[in-house]
């Protein structure tokens, strides 16, 4: 008799039952299996209607984020615990509206991400003949960590501030803005500032630090936010002391 693992999976299908519920499943234990394998096993063998997102199966696409026993995690990067007496509880990411089962609506994050202009902005374009923008390893190091973000939104599910104040731009959007602000090729910091230093930008953050704890790519969005607070504070100080210089 193979060892079995018990799962409790959040189900929500408004066209059948208006209220969400938890459904129990059993899957065989396999030491190479991650939670996503268990979900796929259920979909293939037990209940084809179970809905969840995934794509790469290797922590790159950022689409398989769920809550596993209350912790935001990538289901493709979380191994099944062996001999777990308690069932493993799998829920959709917190703080996002649920469309169906484990699938959440990510529109809010996408809108916020676009607002912080996460791309290289140039105020003066140089002609192609001048060649590429060169960057030293040291210059790259200044933003490299923030560039690892895979938009998995685990940090949003971990952040109580985002849950309480849905207008908050949120950890990943700010970290990605900093990824470009710190890039030696970028000239868009001034254009990002009004969004980042607004009330719903960095100042909504009270440094709970959970975003950094749950980030599977070690982006450290909490550090990005605190660093920008310092930048914004120095900027407003400068604009008081030397109004022309700070402009």
């Amino acid at each position: 008799m193979p060892e079995l693992v018990n799962l409790e999976v959040f189900r929500y299908s408004p066209e059948h039952t208006p209220e969400p519920r938890f459904q129990k499943f059993q899957v065989p234990y396999n030491k190479e299996w991650v939670v996503l394998d268990a979900l796929n096993y259920i979909k293939d063998r037990t209940d084809g209607s179970l809905s969840f997102r995934w794509s790469c199966r290797m922590g790159i696409c950022g689409s398989c984020g769920v809550l596993i026993n209350g912790e935001p995690k990538l289901s493709c990067a979380t191994f099944l615990p062996s001999k777990s007496s308690k069932p493993i509880r799998i829920e959709p990411l917190r703080h996002f509206p649920v469309i169906r089962d484990l699938i959440v609506h990510i529109g809010d994050f996408m809108t916020k991400l676009k607002k912080v202009k996460p791309w290289i902005i140039r105020t003066n374009e140089s002609p192609l003949s001048e060649g590429e923008f060169l960057q030293t390893p040291d210059e790259m190091e200044r933003y490299h960590q923030f560039s690892h973000c895979i938009n998995c939104m685990l940090c949003y599910a971990a952040c109580p501030i985002y849950g309480l104040d849905p207008l908050f731009a949120g950890p990943a959007a700010i970290a990605l803005a900093q990824r470009y602000n710190n890039d030696s090729r970028d000239q868009g910091a001034a254009r990002r500032m009004p969004i980042l230093s607004s009330h719903d930008g960095i100042w909504a953050c009270t440094f709970v630090g959970e975003c950094t704890q749950v980030c599977p790519k070690h982006v450290d969005p909490a550090a990005a936010i605190q660093q920008y607070k310092l930048t914004a504070a120095l900027h407003s100080l400068k604009s008081v002391i030397a109004p022309r210089g700070a402009a």
Binding site: Y12, P20, G70, P97, V98, G163, L164, V208, G209, E210
Partner: peptide
């Protein structure tokens, strides 16, 4: 029909790290 779950008033008791904060 999206399901919107409200944050509980007692969210800060749900995890030790939130409580520490």
């Amino acid at each position: 029909q999206w399901l919107r779950r409200r944050v509980s008033t007692w969210w800060w008791l749900s995890r030790w790290r939130y409580f520490k904060f």
